[in-house]
Simulated scan of single mutants.
Amino acid sequence: MKIDEPVRTPARRKSDVLARLERETDIWVATADAHGVPCLVPLWFVWHGESFWLCTRGANPTGRNLRDGGRTRLALGHTRDVVLIDGEVRVFGTGDVPVAAADAFAAKTGWDPRADSPAYVYFQVRPVAVQAWHGTRELRGRHLMRDGTWLV
């Protein structure tokens, strides 16, 4: 996007965000442990049923932080095309993850953790806040969701 292009409407921003969630495979996952030590890693994801579904080993730092903290911040894009999502986390073992979510994850990523190892855990992230902007000129109006409700 060039700096002289018009600022997107909130509806266009939401549409762009939802298209990216279908198109992209990797998302940055930010967590912190009980002492506030941050952790930032990219994970594969699928957007399914108004939630993000992630999968990683339950014993690694990200898995522990997601489980114990119950919240995360997810991020897509670079500094000129930002999407930030704050979400609440629920944890599912490979035996109790909803089949439709696990199937959608496997279809999108080409990897089915259910067939890999019981050490893997699924994390459902329900967004409570979504922001999107292209550069500083779109900072105004960047909030697309608050308290789990789309504003547009």
Results as ranks from 00 to 15, higher is better:
Gln124Leu: 00
Pro113Ile: 00
Ala101Pro: 03
Val125Pro: 00
Arg73Lys: 13
Val46Glu: 11
Trp133Tyr: 11
Leu54His: 06
Val121Gln: 13
Arg90Gly: 12
Ala101Ser: 09
Val46Trp: 08
Thr62Ala: 11
Ala32His: 09
His35Arg: 14
Pro127Ile: 00
Cys39Glu: 14
Ala59Tyr: 09
Ser117Phe: 10
Gly95Ala: 13
Ile27Gly: 07
His35Lys: 12
Ala119Cys: 11
Gly58Thr: 08
Thr109Asp: 01
Asp116Leu: 13
Ala129Phe: 00
Thr109Ala: 00
Val125Ala: 00
Gly49Met: 04
Trp28Gln: 07
Asp81Ser: 10
Ala102Ile: 02
Gln131Ala: 02
Ala132His: 11
Ala102Ser: 10
Ala107Pro: 01
Gly87His: 05
Gly49Gln: 11
Ala101Cys: 03
Glu50Gln: 12
Tyr122Pro: 06
Leu66Cys: 05
His78Cys: 12
Arg137Met: 02
Trp47Ser: 10
Asp96Ile: 06
Thr56Ile: 02
Ala132Asn: 05
Pro38Val: 09
His134Val: 05
Pro98Asp: 11
Tyr122Asp: 06
Val29Trp: 03
His78Gln: 14
Asn65Asp: 14
Asp26His: 15
Ala101Gly: 05
Ala104Phe: 03
Asp26Thr: 15
Pro38Gly: 09
Ala107Ile: 00
Gly36Lys: 04
Trp44His: 15
Leu43Gly: 11
Pro61Trp: 05
Phe123Asn: 03
Val83Phe: 04
Asp96Lys: 08
His78Pro: 11
His134Trp: 06
Arg90Pro: 11
Ser117Cys: 14
Gln124Cys: 03
Asn60Gly: 07
Glu24Val: 06
Ala119Val: 13
Val128Asp: 01
Ala101Met: 01
Leu76Glu: 13
Leu84Lys: 06
Ala132Lys: 03
Ala19Gly: 09
Phe92Met: 07
Trp133Leu: 02
His35Asp: 14
Thr62Val: 14
Gln131Lys: 02
Leu40Pro: 08
Cys39Tyr: 11
Leu40Phe: 09
Pro127Ser: 00
Val99Gln: 14
Asp112Gly: 01
Leu40Trp: 09
Pro113Cys: 01
Gly49Ser: 09
Ile85Gln: 02
Asn65His: 12
Ala30Ser: 13
Ala32Gln: 12
Gln124Met: 02
